[in-house]
Design a protein around this nucleic acid. Structure first.
Lengths: 349, 349
DNA sequence: CAGCACGAGTTATACGAATGACGCCAGGGT
DNA sequence: ACCCTGGCGTCATTCGTATAACTCGTGCTG
C-alpha cells in the first residue's frame, strides 16, 4: 500500500520515500539534511535511509534551489577560451575548486559574439548562479559587460579596466624578471630579448615581460643594451629571423630570453642552422610553457609557466567570498620551469 | 502602490511584474510564454512587457523546471579531458550545439577519479539533466559507468564496449586510408609507416591507422612491405630514431606516413639531419593536426585532422534525439589537411 | 498533581511559474 | 427574454522541498 503511488512515475520524490518508510515527508527532509538534531529517532532514521536506497531517491535540485533561493551553480563565461589550447586549464582550475566547495560550473563560450555573451549571462542569471567567472582567451585589458555589472563577478586571465571587480592575471613583469634573472644567475651578461609584440603594442604580456627583463638587468648592474633587443610577432618565423639577426650582429649574445615558446622554437632553428649548440653556445629561456612544445624541443626548453590553474582557483576563491578581498588586481606568479636550455656562461667569455 | 512590494527584495518575480502592470501573475506568464493565443489583449501585453523591462525581470529557471519537469541542462562528464590540449574542442562542439538547441552544459571533470565521477553523475541527475555526454580523453574502448546505465547517455571520443549507448569516435581506419592514399596518389610506391603503438597494443588509434594504411596499399596494388613499417610510442624521439632507421635501410622510402604529428616532427628532424629535404626528398603525412605543431613545422605538415567538433555535435544531436538512431557505433570521418610536406614522387624513381 | 521539559514526529505553508478550469461581459440570433 | 459565442482575464492548483509552528505522550520536579 505504501508503494501504491509508484507505478510508471518518473523520479521518486520525498513523498514516495516517506510513504515507503511510513513517515511524513517532513521527516524525510529532516533526515536527509541532517537537520533537527534529535528530532528523529535512530530507528526511524534507518527506515528512511533504507527507503531512500531502495527507491534510489535523489533530491530534486530545482525544488531545493527554489525553496532555498540558492543554486550551487557558478557561471563561467568565456570568449573562445574553450577552444584555445590552454583553455581547459582555466576551466580545470575553476572546476576543481568549485567542486571542492560543493558547486558546479555552468559554462558557456560566447565565441566572441557579444549578443550571445549577453544571452549567456542572462541565462545564468535565470539559473541564479552564485556568481560569474569571466574568462579571457588571452591576457588583455577589458571592460566588463554591462550584464555583469550587478551580480558577483570576477575577471580571469585579463585585467578589468575600471576596477569594478577583482581581476586575476599572470604577473608578466615578474615572470620576465624571473626568466632574465635565471640567465644572469648563470653568469650571462650579454642577455638578449626577443619580445613578442612591437614596442607600441599595449598588450600586457609583451610590456610586462620586457619590463621584467629590464628590471632584472638593472638589479644585476648590467647595462641595458638596445642592440640586444628585438621585436617580433610571437611566431616561429620571427624567432628564426630575429635570432639570426642577433647572432650576426657585432655583439652576439650568449643567452636569449624569448618572449614566448614559439619564438624560442624559432631561435632553436636559427642556432641549429648556424651550427651553434644549445645550451653550450647559447642559452635560451622561453615563456608560456606550452605543453605540446617546450618539453619536446631538443634540449627541453627552460621556460616560464603561466599559472592557469592557480589563477582560476584564486579567482573562484575570491568570487565565493572565502577570501573577501579589497584589492581588485591580482597578478599571479609565473614560475620557472627548468629544462635543458640554459647553461653557465663560459668563463673565458 | 503597485510598486509597494518592491523594497529590498532579491530578484523580481512574476507577481512583482503583475502588480506593476496591474494584472494577474497568470497573465504575465501567458504573455512571457506566448501561450494562450488571444487570451491577452495587445494593450495589456504591452503594459506587461513594459513592466518586465522596468523591473529587469528574468524568469526563475528553477521554478520553471520544477513545474515542467525539464531542465534544459545537459551533463558533460569527462576524465581529465578538460586538461588535455584538445579537450576544449570536444567541449566546444558540444557547447555550440547545446546552445543552438536551447540547452546549457553542466560540465564536470572527474580527473580519473571514479568516486568523483559517480558523485558528479549523481549530481547531474539531481539537476535532472536531459542526458549525459561521457567524454574520453583519448580514443579507447570503455565500459559505461553504472550510474549512467539508466539515463540517456552517449559516449564521446571512445567506443562503449557493450553497445548499450551510442558511441562517437574518430574513424581511424579511414583516416589512415586517406593519409596513405594521398601519398599513393602523389605517385609514391615506397610508402613507409611509423605507427604509434607496438603491434600488440589494443588502442584503436594505432590499429585503425595501420589497417587503413594496408587497405590503401592493397587497393592501389602496392604490395605491403614489412621492411617499411616501424613501431614506436608516438613521441618525437621515436619518430627521429625510426626515420633514421628507415632511411638507412636497403630500400629507403620516398614517403612516410607517421602515426601522429609528434612522430612526424621527429621524422622532420631525422631527415634534416640526414640532409634530406621535405617534401622533395621525402614526403611526410602526419595524424592529429595538432594545432600548436603541424602549422609551424617547416614546411607545414600535411596531416589528418581529428574531428572533435563534429564528433561532439553528432553525439549531442543523437543524445537530444533530434536524430534518433539505431546504430550504436558512429565512426566520424577524419579529413586530410594539406600543407606543404607532400610532393609528387620523382619520375625517375 | 499541576506544570514543564523533552523526544519524536506531523501539519501547513512558502518558494516562482505554468496551466486547466472558470468568470464576466458584450453582442447576436431566435 | 433567453441562450450562445468570443474575447479577455483571473483562480486555484501543481511541481518537490525546507522549515516554523504545532501536537502528543512521558517522565520528572516541586
Amino acid at each position: 500500500m505504501a508503494r501504491g503511488a509508484n507505478g510508471a512515475s518518473k523520479q521518486p520524490t520525498m513523498w514516495d520515500v516517506a510513504s515507503l518508510a511510513g513517515v511524513s515527508q517532513a521527516s524525510v527532509s529532516l533526515v536527509l539534511n541532517d537537520a533537527g538534531r534529535g528530532r528523529v529517532s535512530d530507528a526511524t532514521r534507518e527506515r528512511i535511509l533504507d527507503a531512500v536506497r531502495e527507491l534510489d531517491y535523489r533530491t530534486n535540485a530545482f525544488a531545493k534551489s527554489l525553496r532555498s533561493g540558492e543554486s550551487g551553480l557558478i557561471g563561467f563565461v568565456s570568449d573562445e577560451v574553450a577552444s584555445a589550447p590552454f583553455a581547459g586549464r582555466l576551466l580545470k582550475g575553476a572546476q576543481e575548486l568549485a567542486w571542492e566547495t560543493g558547486h558546479v560550473i555552468l559554462s558557456v563560450d560566447s565565441f566572441g559574439d557579444d549578443a550571445l555573451e549577453e544571452a549567456a549571462i542572462d541565462m545564468m542569471r535565470s539559473y541564479r548562479v552564485r556568481g560569474v567567472v569571466y574568462g579571457s582567451m588571452y591576457h588583455r585589458v577589458l571592460r566588463l559587460p554591462a550584464a555583469l555589472q550587478d551580480i558577483p563577478a570576477v575577471v580571469l586571465n585579463a585585467r578589468e579596466a575600471d576596477g569594478k571587480v577583482p581581476s586575476f592575471f599572470p604577473d608578466e613583469e615578474r615572470g620576465g624578471y624571473t626568466a632574465t634573472r635565471h640567465l644572469l644567475d648563470a653568469g650571462h651578461t650579454r642577455v638578449a630579448m626577443i619580445n613578442i609584440q612591437p614596442p607600441d603594442s599595449d598588450l600586457p604580456a609583451g610590456i610586462g615581460r620586457m619590463a621584467g627583463y629590464r628590471r632584472a638587468l638593472e638589479e644585476a648592474g648590467v647595462e641595458f643594451d638596445e642592440r640586444l633587443v628585438r621585436y617580433g610577432g610571437g611566431v616561429v618565423e620571427d624567432g628564426l629571423a630575429l635570432t639570426r639577426d642577433l647572432m650576426a650582429g657585432p655583439a652576439a649574445p650568449t643567452a636569449i630570453f624569448c618572449g614566448n615558446d614559439r619564438t624560442a622554437w624559432g631561435a632553436y632553428r636559427a642556432l641549429e642552422a648556424l651550427g651553434l649548440r644549445i645550451p653550450d653556445d647559447c642559452s635560451i629561456v622561453g615563456f608560456d610553457d606550452q605543453e605540446t612544445l617546450a618539453p619536446y624541443l631538443d634540449p627541453g626548453l627552460t621556460t616560464v609557466a603561466l599559472p592557469f590553474e592557480q589563477m582560476a582557483r584564486s579567482a573562484l576563491d575570491t568570487l565565493l567570498g572565502t577570501r573577501p578581498d579589497e584589492v581588485s588586481d591580482h597578478p599571479i606568479e609565473c614560475s620557472l620551469v627548468p629544462r635543458g636550455s640554459v647553461a653557465s656562461a663560459k668563463v673565458h667569455e
